[in-house]
Simulated assay, not measured.
Amino acid sequence: MDITDRPRRLRADGVRDLVSETRLAPADFVVPVFVDATTDERVPIESMPGHERVPVDEAVARVEEVLETGVESVMLFGIPESKDAEGSRAWAEDGVVQRATRAIKAETDAYVIADLCLCEYTDHGHCGVLEPDAAEDPDLTVRNDATLERYAETARSQAAAGADMIAPSGMMDGQVAAIRAGLDEGGFEHVPIMAYAAKYASAFYGPFRDAADGAPAFGDRRHYQMDPANRREAMREVRLDAEQGADALMVKPALPYLDVVRDVRESFDRPVAAYNVSGEYAMLHAAAEKGWLDLDAAARESLLSIKRAGADLIVTYFGERVARDL
């Protein structure tokens, strides 16, 4: 048999790495860090093995652990000491994320991305100010435009604390424009926005809600997060955020939406982010604990698939683990 085209020639050790089309590096990863103002000690997150809530006083030490692996960027999430209907601790000068950010920026070289949402700060667990009687009527949820005012105020507060980037995740219409205007008016024109541009109402968020204490007290978030059935709508959402001034564009979750990651990569000239979410992390851990797969190999392959689809950066709970191997 005369076989002239033999792809296996380039799969031998030695040449295999030379022709690898996709590479991972620690600098590709953003590691989420949960800072908890209600505790004086680290609290393991049971549904996310290897991750903890850390008290404000240990935020610097936690970030230093991340930096030791070669990862350069963290995303901060806060659990406040108190909650109310509007989530006012989100924009407080002495809020949990603000305090942690000041300490981290003073003592480390980490690039700090501040997640901006209200679900961790509201006593009802939704991502903004509620419509009247929303708890009784499932067709009522968050007041979009009233919420934008709180987002802009929170962004200014986070930037004033030293956040390098703001990442709004609430999926309110017009949120990027409102935050951009708020930052610019506050003298923070230099602070970029990484928009959660296509964030789906996903079943893969469960462990995160345990980690951030942000589950809705009633109802769900389907009225403001995207329908998992919709691909074309994602392009509309992303386009709007790009037009409003988003500097980077995120798709969340990552693995079930690799087609959307690819669409964004091909259609927009901004950096593309993908969030390898808590449920994606937890399910690999659960399968590995059963002995059904190799955790390190599966984690690395998952992150490769996200980057191969077109992501420039990946928010992932596997960041430290994979970075050590790289």
Rank of each mutant, 00 (worst) to 15 (best):
D109C: 09
L140I: 13
A298Y: 04
S82G: 06
Q98E: 02
T122I: 08
A161H: 05
A160F: 07
A161N: 04
D133G: 11
P32V: 12
A234T: 13
T4S: 14
T4C: 12
G291F: 12
E21L: 13
A197G: 13
D137L: 14
L140F: 15
L295H: 02
M172L: 12
M172T: 07
I306F: 05
D263M: 15
S47G: 10
K105Q: 12
R232K: 12
F77L: 12
A309P: 14
P138I: 12
F208H: 08
E136A: 15
R42W: 11
G182P: 06
E46Y: 08
R9F: 14
V56P: 01
A92E: 07
R150M: 11
K105C: 10
A197R: 00
H51R: 02
H124F: 08
V251C: 11
D84W: 03
S302E: 03
E21R: 14
E185V: 09
E86P: 07
R222M: 07
T39L: 04
W292T: 11
L24M: 02
R53F: 10
A90D: 04
V277D: 00
V15G: 03
G279E: 04
I104Q: 06
P168W: 01
M171W: 03
R42S: 08
A274W: 04
V322A: 03
A155V: 03
